[in-house]
Design a protein around this nucleic acid. Structure first.
Lengths: 213, 213
DNA sequence: TAGATTGTTAATCGATTAACAATC
DNA sequence: TAGATTGTTAATCGATTAACAATC
């Protein structure tokens, strides 16, 4: 099947969550699961699960359900967890260091190979197994190691500039934590903006509502 | 106007972004803006902007547009940026410390009053102006200071338990960074899950697509 | 075979966009 | 007044849910 007629981003954003739940089921030793059972665990409709999965192919078996391990590895493959994309972090402040550590220990799909900061004072400081490098060395490093993903943990003001520079160096994907809406008008460049400030304001909005009542 | 007939979460999630852009316009000294101009800046439709804003009241003026500073402060008020909700961070690992620092310096709407970790070795270590406390002291601390928002930066396994404990202590809002889908079946409790791992997998999915081409 | 559950089409629902009358 | 732009209603689009025939 595998209809590649553009999967909607609503579907894609649900895939990692499927992947997590299926991983949990595997750890519990569950072999098979029906869309109904999974829908109860995940608080979705069974219909939605079947629709979502069928965007990528018929992973289930009528009358039986889905094989947990098979579905888990299929979704993993779709998400690229086995790809180990070479990744660099730009900005070694609190957040940059935390995210770098996080990528090293907790994620799949990425291989962290470098962390950079423009502050010369940080140069040589360790973050896990890596030593912080100066952003002056980006050109040299990227030509040599060809990273694909850049994680931006830098202030708003420098973001667009460094992103453009990185595009020039062959970087293709940006995980952007800066307080800036990065959008790159190149083809074949993708950006995932994470706005922690926005997320927190969403929470204070809701808090406002329940507290004022 | 102020129709409180439940604003959709699609609208609410756009508010912080409006707030950011309006703040930027203020800094640039712009007095008025039309929905069309703003739509070009933000890459939205003018129609959507007018619809969104009208959920909360008529902030504009026909034939003129919107007064930037007025709209900025109205949205800020709606989001609760002036509320200074007392906030605690649970978990003082890399991420917990980074988020704690972030809340202190970069956000409004929250006042960070405590950071906790269950590891006794961390007790007394400083994070900004705060000293890390033991989670054993949560009860005492919360009865005394009555925090409203809890930021969870702890492993998956302990999350539900500590969240339930915090609900018992009067906490009402949870900003959850743990690798766990927190959902609390109480009324008047709100949860904002931030799944960094999911966000990164969304990026590797896209990276997969552009790299394989 | 009968029962279960998928894959898939059709119906519904909600969100976005377009259109335009109201009005500054 | 004429021009501009909002507030708001109507039309469109996309995503979710329901239904059911296919099939294991």
């Amino acid at each position: 099947m595998a209809k590649n007629g553009q999967i909607s981003s609503s579907v894609i954003k649900r895939l990692p969550r499927y992947y997590r739940f299926l991983g949990e089921l595997m750890r519990q030793g569950t072999d098979r699961i029906s869309s109904r059972e999974l829908s109860e665990m995940m608080k979705l409709t069974a219909s939605q699960i079947r629709q979502d999965l069928n965007c990528f192919g018929g992973f289930g078996q009528q009358g039986y359900g889905y094989r947990v391990s098979e579905l888990h590895s299929e979704i993993g493959r779709i998400l690229g967890v086995d790809r180990d994309f070479k990744t660099i972090v730009i900005g070694a402040g609190n957040l940059g260091r935390a995210i770098a550590t996080h990528i090293n220990f907790e994620t799949r799909g990425c291989d962290l190979i470098g962390i950079f900061d423009k502050d010369p004072a940080l140069k040589g400081t360790s973050v896990g197994k890596l030593k912080i490098m100066s952003t002056d060395n980006l050109e040299q490093f990227c030509r040599r190691h060809k990273p694909v993903i850049a994680v931006l943990c830098i202030p708003k003001s420098g973001t667009q500039e460094i992103a453009d520079r990185l595009v020039g160096l062959g970087l293709r994907s940006f995980w952007n934590f800066s307080h800036y809406d990065l959008s790159i008008d190149h083809e074949d460049i993708i950006v995932e903006n994470v706005h922690l400030g926005d997320s927190l304001l969403t929470l204070t909005y809701g808090t406002n509502a329940i507290i004022s009542e």
